[in-house]
Amino acid sequence: MYIQFPYLSQGSLTAAVMDRCVWRQVRDDNPGRYRDWHSTVFDEQGEKGSGWASTDNLLDITRGVDGVDADAVDSCMQTDRADIESSIAADVTKAQELGLRGSPASIFYNRDTGDTGRLVGAQPYARFETEITAVQNA
């Protein structure tokens, strides 16, 4: 499960909202397109504060991703933005309660035992293996 943690600027929040809109648009019929969209935005990101994460520019990027209906995403941005922003604000609060202070961060959860693990940042793969194993065996 992905949880948004926008903290850099208004552009971060715009991108986070569009992320949710894209997921809503593709999740039933073609969920794999979400990853394509996410990778494309990551590859085409601009400098911080340059305004690259504006709604218009993000929609332009979205139009270049096969299988994602940019018009439907635009419609979602206009009609559902406030609700999605509220949901993201709740997620950010929850993440902060879990001790997360930046991104990326990963939480591991054992449903049977309730044990959790946490990794902050893009750590080496071996660290993920160790943490997942520890939570599984907890």
Partner: peptide, 9 residues
């Protein structure tokens, strides 16, 4: 520059 990451790693 990323203290929580550094400390954990």
């Amino acid at each position: 520059t990323f203290p929580t990451y550094s400390m954990q790693l």
